[in-house]
Computed example of a mutant assay.
Amino acid sequence: MKKLFFLGLCLFAARSGFAWGQKGHDVTAYIAECHLTPAAAKKIDKVLGGYSPVYFANWLDNASHTPEYAYTKTWHYLNVDEGRTLDDMPANPQGDILKAVTEIVAKLRAGGLSPEEEAFNLKMLIHLLGDMHCPMHLGRATDLGGNLRPVRFFDKETNLHSVWDTSLVESAHKWSYTEWQRQIDRLTKQEAEAVAAGTPADWVAETLEICRKVYDETPEGSRISYDYIAAAAPVIERQLLRAGHRLARLLNEIYR
Rank of each mutant, 00 (worst) to 15 (best):
L9R: 09
C10R: 09
R15I: 15
G17N: 13
Q22Y: 13
G24I: 02
G24E: 06
G24K: 12
D26G: 09
D26S: 12
V27G: 04
Y30Q: 08
E33C: 10
L36E: 04
T37K: 03
A41K: 06
K42N: 10
K43T: 00
Y51V: 04
S52K: 02
F56G: 02
A57L: 05
A63N: 12
S64Y: 11
S64I: 11
S64Q: 14
H65T: 13
H65L: 12
T66L: 11
T66W: 06
A70L: 15
A70K: 13
Y71Q: 15
T72E: 11
H76K: 08
H76F: 12
L78D: 11
N79V: 12
D81I: 07
L86D: 10
D87L: 14
M89V: 06
A91H: 15
N92S: 13
P93N: 03
Q94K: 15
D96L: 02
D96H: 05
L98T: 10
K99D: 15
A100N: 08
V101N: 11
V101K: 05
T102F: 05
T102K: 07
I104G: 02
A106S: 08
L108I: 00
S114W: 03
E116K: 14
E117W: 03
E118T: 01
K123D: 06
K123N: 12
M124L: 12
M124I: 06
L125A: 05
L125W: 03
L125C: 06
H127N: 10
D131Y: 08
M132Y: 06
M132I: 13
M132T: 10
C134A: 11
C134H: 07
M136I: 11
L138P: 07
G139H: 08
G139K: 09
